[in-house]
Nucleic acid binder design. Structure first.
Lengths: 136, 136
DNA sequence: CACTAGGGTTAGGGTTCT
DNA sequence: TAGAACCCTAACCCTAGT
């Protein structure tokens, strides 16, 4: 099948956040077509963006675990999205990822990453891109 | 408490195999709701089916050579155990299910596909033929 | 017809129990 | 230590509504 499962890379997440910063949540198509961060999301559909944002919003929610919690808690967009558009524009997708492999294998960087738990790579990337992380 | 650990019976395993033969792997919900073998799996969730299939696939995997390793080798029924539809039909005495949808039970779902989604026929064929590597 | 929102399902890593 | 059964949830699908 096409893709066994394409995990989101930190670059893509950053691009999505930048897109939401600029257009606001719900403007998935516009985000995807934006010339700034769009290139980072060529392998993602507008629906993918929507789904990912939903997942991010959920996890950003302070939730212990449905394992021992009730949990009707739910969704709501940004936790602490204080990043400005200027910062978003500062993102240079081409600087962090090869422009060559647009399609067949966009999962490049973290495709074979299996590490668990918090990885500092995310934080580093966020820092490099000038974005802030939604959850501590 | 909620889950005393319910071991899978041979009947359930047979029903699962029959379901995979019919719908292809990955169509857990469809398998579970099938009027023919579904009744055998009423106490199993679609996720349970998925998990069980995974376990079966793993154990069916050859583990002789210690030199071969590296790939996930996703799904595919055991090469040695080729339960055919006939066997599948033989497994369930409950085949006398509700007369409700007795008819279009055979090829219903896969017959009127819009052209999207994976052709499970291929996968079944590969499985039966013992081909490997669902995805390169 | 294209897009979005939201519910539903699957895939795969992780955990628990035996 | 290994394997089976079950949990968690990101990623993906389906469909109604606009």
């Amino acid at each position: 099948m096409g893709a066994p499962k394409q995990k989101w890379t930190p670059e893509e997440e950053a691009a999505l956040r930048a897109g939401v910063e600029k257009y606001g949540p719900g403007k998935w198509r516009a985000i995807q077509k934006d010339s700034k961060f769009g290139p980072c999301l060529t392998s993602r559909s507008n629906v993918d963006l929507k789904d990912k944002w939903r997942n991010m919003s959920v996890s950003a929610n302070g939730l212990g675990s449905s394992r021992e919690r009730g949990k009707p808690l739910a969704l709501m967009p940004p936790p602490g999205m204080l990043t400005l558009m200027d910062d978003a524009l500062a993102i240079d997708p081409l600087a962090t990822m090869a422009p060559a492999d647009v399609k067949g294998d966009g999962a490049d960087i973290s495709s074979d990453r299996k590490s668990l738990g918090p990885r500092y790579d995310d934080m580093v990337l966020e820092a490099v891109l000038g974005l802030k992380e939604p959850y501590g």
